[in-house]
């Protein structure tokens, strides 16, 4: 069963298209997905995920289960960067500012990893709750605050406290962080799906449901190209400790989330998704926030790790493992 699951995930079209993009970029192929088209694909995917989640939420009454899960998601997103920071400082010798910025990425989430996990769960016949999209949205932002708190000491050492956001710019920073593109689209589509329900979804399903898998393949081809390019350009900035962090940190986060799932006693599908969310690393919301609030940190370090190392690891090996962990923890 576990080998079947791993194989079916690895050999799914979305993973294979990602691998194609990754290999093409590493081999310096000229293949590209046009920029505006790729941005459109990202918007489409987030809208589709949000709508689908919202419709599922409209079918059920949200009870204490959801509230506890949201609370745990908040704790994970806020707390994991502190652990990631410690791990980075101990194993890679990274300076405080870069370690803080990188750690922030590992508390936040990757929505594409989440989608890939839902597809793998669907393939394995394991059901999940629609409200998990809301849980994903909850986990986007708190990690950014943790990263900024962690960076304070490093900024003090450099005498650069307050350099990132001065005076009125703090308001701009808060607005950019809270209203970043991925959060707005995801939460907005979730609310629209919730309000319009099944009837509303029926009208737009030929656009948002039927072509979803194909669009996801196209998007992952582009993600593969981005990850490959990032890895090719940025690996020189990373030592073995940092590269290792990109693989072991998702596993540590997964184990911590696993513990919470056991305490909450949630379903296998939801557990697998929460574990995946905890193990994933952001490459949209957090990099944008870090460039605004912590410009002293090097994007080549945190983007190479989250997009070039952790994302491919999660997509290929991580997701089957997280699904198995979800099944195991709920079977205990």
């Amino acid at each position: 069963m576990s080998l079947d699951l791993a194989l079916s995930t690895l050999l799914s079209p979305i993973v294979l298209f990602f691998v194609l993009g990754l290999i093409a970029a590493l081999l310096r192929s000229q293949m590209t997905v046009p920029e505006a088209f790729a941005k459109g694909l990202a918007l489409y995917l987030m809208m589709a995920i949000g709508l689908k989640g919202g419709v599922e939420m409209s079918k059920a009454v949200l009870g204490p289960d959801f509230i506890f899960l949201a609370l745990i998601a908040l704790i994970l997103s806020f707390g994991l960067p502190f652990l990631a920071y410690l791990a980075l400082r101990l194993t890679s010798g990274m300076d405080r500012i870069n370690a803080a910025a990188t750690a922030g990425h590992y508390g936040s989430i990757s929505i594409v990893t989440y989608v890939a996990a839902t597809q793998a769960l669907q393939l394995a016949g394991i059901s999940t709750s629609g409200y998990m999209v809301a849980i994903a949205a909850v986990m986007e932002v708190p990690a950014i605050m943790s990263a900024l708190m962690l960076a304070r000491k490093g900024l003090k050492e450099k005498g650069a406290i307050g350099e990132g956001a001065i005076g009125s710019e703090r308001g701009e920073l808060v607005r950019e962080v809270m209203l970043n593109a991925s959060v707005v689209v995801l939460v907005g589509a979730l609310l629209i799906g919730w309000i319009t329900g099944e009837a509303g979804m029926e009208k737009i399903s030929p656009f948002f449901v039927d072509p979803f898998q194909g669009v996801l393949c196209l998007f992952l081809l582009d993600m593969g190209l981005s990850a490959g390019r990032g890895l090719r350009q940025g690996w020189r900035d990373l030592n073995v400790g940092a590269l290792g962090f990109g693989v072991y940190m998702p596993l540590i986060s997964a184990m911590i989330a696993c513990g919470f799932c056991y305490v909450l006693n949630i379903s296998a599908g939801n557990a697998a998704l929460l574990i995946t969310l905890a193990a994933s690393a952001s490459y949209i919301a957090v990099p944008a926030a870090m460039r605004l609030a912590l410009p002293q940190a090097q994007p080549s370090i945190y983007l190479t790790l989250s997009l070039g190392v952790t994302f491919p690891f999660n997509l290929t090996l991580g997701i089957p493992l997280y699904i198995l962990l979800g099944q195991w923890i709920t079977g205990l």
Partner: peptide, 18 residues
């Protein structure tokens, strides 16, 4: 500064942070 040349190109990330 490190002497390692780095090429970059416009990304496809919707936040356009790069």
């Amino acid at each position: 500064e490190s002497g390692n040349g780095r090429r970059w190109q416009r990304g496809t990330d919707i936040s356009a942070s790069g």
